[in-house]
Amino acid sequence: MKSKILITFFALCLTVVAVTASNDSYYGKTKRANLKEEKVTRVIFFLHDILSGQNPSAVRIAHANLTGASNSPVGFGSLFAMDDPLTVGPEKDSKVIGNGRGMYISGSKDMGKFTIVMYADLAFTTGKFNGSSISLFSRNPVAEEAGEREIAIVGGRGKFRMARGYVKIKTHRIDMKTGDAVLRYDAIVYHY
């Protein structure tokens, strides 16, 4: 009887050790990061958010039935997917340097205080930052057209790995009937 209890005790101890060892295997050792000196980069470009025409760069993928006229291009609760070109200048035929892909939702009932909440990955496809991007996740108070508005940079990849910072957005041109807009982005990016 004592030997059965002793065997059971040892079996339980081995099970505890095995379970403890397997639970620790999902991570490696923590090491001190050996980061280079932090850099600050300023990038200025234009984003073309086109909702109209045969080839829009942003499309409404969902909207609430109860929050306004269905003919409103950006009614409250509307969710958009975007694949917007990034260009050097505001003109439609300006040199394309990347694209802004992501989503945004109309997040304000009061059109006088029109605000969107957006997630976007702004990827650069030419030049010094080819293959790099900055990630945005922020509230964008679009109705503050008179001046610049600020949104947060929350990450990046490539040369902008571990990025943080902000983007000052100024509306260059907007058509309130169609929702089409050309926006000037002035990004201050802190990265390693």
Rank of each mutant, 00 (worst) to 15 (best):
R149L: 01
Y104S: 06
Y26D: 12
K177A: 12
K39I: 11
P90S: 13
A146N: 12
G131A: 04
L12Q: 08
D84L: 03
I116P: 00
I169V: 14
I5R: 14
L136D: 01
I169C: 10
G89M: 02
S135G: 04
Y27P: 03
F45K: 03
A21K: 13
T8V: 11
T115D: 03
D121Y: 01
D83P: 01
L51A: 08
L12D: 02
G53R: 10
Y166W: 09
L183Q: 05
N55W: 04
N140K: 05
M103C: 03
A146K: 13
F9P: 05
R60M: 15
S106C: 06
G89W: 02
A62V: 07
C13R: 05
N23I: 15
N34I: 15
Y104E: 04
G165S: 03
H172V: 02
R101Y: 08
V43Q: 09
R161F: 13
S52E: 11
H63D: 15
F46Y: 15
M118D: 06
A152W: 01
T30W: 14
V96M: 07
S78V: 10
K170F: 09
L136T: 07
S78E: 03
D186R: 04
G165I: 05
V19E: 07
K177Y: 03
D84N: 12
S133C: 07
S72N: 12
M176I: 04
K4Y: 11
G112R: 06
L35M: 15
G165Y: 01
K113M: 12
N99Y: 07
M1Y: 10
K170C: 04
F10N: 07
V19L: 13
D83I: 02
S108Q: 10
N34T: 14
A123L: 06
F124P: 00
S133H: 06
G28Q: 13
P85T: 09
T125A: 10
S3E: 12
A123G: 11
D83N: 15
D24K: 15
R139S: 07
G127F: 04
E150S: 13
N34L: 15
A11E: 09
S52Q: 10
N65A: 13
R101M: 11
R161Y: 09
R164V: 07
L51K: 08
S52I: 13
T87F: 01
S57V: 06
A81C: 11
P85I: 02
F114R: 09
E37C: 06
D84C: 09
A120Y: 04
G156E: 00
K170R: 13
T8A: 12
G75L: 09
K31A: 14
G28I: 06
E38F: 01
D186Q: 06
L51R: 08
I105W: 01
F160K: 01
Y192G: 03
K4H: 12
E144R: 10
G179L: 04
P141I: 11
L136R: 00
Y119P: 00
K2V: 15
F124L: 05
P73F: 07
G158M: 05
R32P: 10
Y190E: 05
F114N: 07
R164M: 02
G100R: 00
M111F: 11
A123F: 03
G127D: 03
